[in-house]
């Protein structure tokens, strides 16, 4: 049953101490397999234990980052809740029939009276280096973007990363009318739908403008219906918007 290859093992052990080569007989195949199987099982067990410990913390951090980002792009609403895109319509969590984790979603921010002030949505598309993920706030009543925050990007340090670090560029997205138009710095006419691009990071800044526009097209129709329906699918009517 043994298929040991002593010559091979002596070769491959060229760097090992000679004493080992001399003293130890070649191990049987069963022993080799058993050793790796036991080691693998122990390693797996250890990883699962650490995972059990770390996963809730990682999730909590993710949720906190997202909540802060929603708060920022909707200019600190009194409350926010998630809306799910199901069968082409936006519905709130209570009315969703499918598993909510699988559904596309936006977040609606409300003022103290419960009146929606805007929705926040994630958009993602390829930037210069890798995919850029951002979240932006949108006010369907005014047709204006309320704010933009980059969640994930690997753009070039010093150039492309200005999309998140350059406060002048980020503030361009406050109150700009959709669909957005990216213009080169210095070519701005002052129109309300213009966003000044960053010199040296044109691809990254164009990607941001385009991904927001694309996402607005994607959710525009159900969002418009939801919004004109009183901004609530939970039954609150009489909103004078």
């Amino acid at each position: 049953m043994s298929v040991d290859l002593p010559t091979v093992s002596a070769d491959s052990g060229g760097e090992a101490a000679e004493t080992d080569v001399a003293v130890r007989p070649p191990a049987s195949s069963v022993r080799l397999v058993a050793t790796l199987a036991v080691a693998g099982a122990l390693a797996g067990l250890l990883i699962v234990l650490v995972h059990e410990w770390s996963e809730p913390r990682i999730e909590a951090h993710r949720a906190r980052v997202l909540a802060e980002a929603i708060d920022e792009v909707l200019a600190s609403p009194a409350s926010t809740d998630a809306l799910y895109l199901e069968n082409g319509a936006l519905v709130d969590g209570a009315a969703v029939t499918a598993d909510t984790t699988t559904l596309d979603r936006v977040w609606v921010g409300r003022d103290r009276a419960g009146v929606p002030v805007g929705v926040a949505s994630v958009a993602a598309a390829a930037g210069f280096q890798d995919e850029i993920r951002l979240i932006f706030g949108y006010d369907p009543a005014a047709g204006a973007v309320l704010g933009m925050k980059v969640l994930e990007s690997r753009e070039t340090p010093g150039l492309g990363d200005k999309i998140e670090k350059d406060s002048a560029f980020v503030s361009e997205f406050r109150g700009v009318l959709a669909p957005l138009v990216g213009v080169k710095a210095g070519k701005a006419t002052g129109a309300e739908d213009e966003v000044d691009m960053i010199t040296g990071a044109t691809i990254s800044s164009v990607a941001i403008v385009e991904m927001i526009n694309a996402r607005l097209v994607e959710i525009g129709e159900p969002l418009g219906r939801w919004w004109s329906g009183g901004g609530s699918s939970a039954g609150a009517v009489g909103d004078d918007r």
Binding site: D4, S9, S12, G13, A16, D20, V21, R24, P26, A27, R31, L32, T35, L36, A39, G40, A43
Partner: peptide, 12 residues
């Protein structure tokens, strides 16, 4: 066992 030491190290 010496024959599977590299695999074992990498696993560890």
């Amino acid at each position: 066992p010496k024959e599977v030491r590299i695999s074992a190290y990498i696993l560890i």
